[in-house]
Design a protein around this nucleic acid. Sequence first.
DNA 1: CCTTTTCATTAACAAATGATAAAACAATCA
DNA 2: TGATTGTTTTATCATTTGTTAATGAAAAGG
Lengths: 191, 191
Amino acid sequence: MNNIVKNIIHQIFPISDQSFLEIDKLLEIESYSKGETFISKNKRDEKEYFVISGICKSYLINPDGDEVTISLFAENSILSPQSIRTSNNISNLNFKALTKVELVSMNAKEFENLMIESIEIRQFGSTVLQNELIAKVEKEIGLASLTAKERLIEFRKTHHLLENLIPHTDIASYLGITNISLSRLRKELSR
Amino acid sequence: MNNIVKNIIHQIFPISDQSFLEIDKLLEIESYSKGETFISKNKRDEKEYFVISGICKSYLINPDGDEVTISLFAENSILSPQSIRTSNNISNLNFKALTKVELVSMNAKEFENLMIESIEIRQFGSTVLQNELIAKVEKEIGLASLTAKERLIEFRKTHHLLENLIPHTDIASYLGITNISLSRLRKELSR
DNA sequence: CCTTTTCATTAACAAATGATAAAACAATCA
DNA sequence: TGATTGTTTTATCATTTGTTAATGAAAAGG
């Protein structure tokens, strides 16, 4: 059904055509417009997502009622809320489309059944999990610097395309600063 | 051989006695004194660790030559450098004992062989990976606040025992502030 | 026991960042 | 087009944080 998903999967793990056909049966297309929240609390344990086009974020609401950006997801990436499903402590993490977004979703329980039946698909699933973990470690290393300026420089290295595509408020939140401070740093770095 | 390891494993996944006996054959005891670095670059792809007693940190060296604390590992936890093994970008992450530390190590390749043979051990391995990921997500949520004071308060909730056991320099680095700033916040919060 | 080292605190000042408000700019829509 | 809304920049001031240096306390080692 969807060659883009096949490519995304192949970039992660060289799955066989037969295995992909099994996965393919679970795929459905979803699309959301800018600003739309697409994983609510009661739905989040149901699906894995492949980001076909557009950009999404995960976020939470802080005590002041503001959205704090936790992660950013560009196109051709897997948005896999596995960690959220299995954790009781992470209760209020939500997902939102920052641009018009096309997703391919996959029922999580059916995918788990596939993983039980097929060693190859389980290896794919484990590799997704590992990649998620690597992304987190790389992120925490990138944000480990004390100064916001260095964090912005690091962000530009890993997300160089995103800065002109999504609201700076989300980037600032991701970097742990205000959008006003981000604006100052942008000006300073452009000189 | 080691009932403590059995307990640690059981807290994560209810493995059978038979499976544990297979794992048990791979276990070896290691101990390090305070300040000792125990995973160097060339060794890190060899072992998984169970922290029996003491506290460790993962860290990297920033351009100024200072150690930046990335993660903290208390006793009764698994120190599983799976993500490091599989990532090319995370090259300079090291591990150090912050107190006298007793570890039980397990050869990673032999454990992978066990995972191929046994579904149950495979499930245990996947769960370890999931737990690592959950810990990272919980950490990034805990550190998502803009102010250092709130991050310290959050840190105290999740690591309440650690503050009096390890150098404040490492806690400050973990929180993204200087130890002097941490001292100021401690004083302010104690009033 | 003394010395040395490491760590935590404090003070004074400089630098960076947040808060608030205003203005410029861009995007959307009737 | 004009109005509206949202985003980014800029300016001002208050607050927080980093830097440097000094001090004291605790731990480590001879």
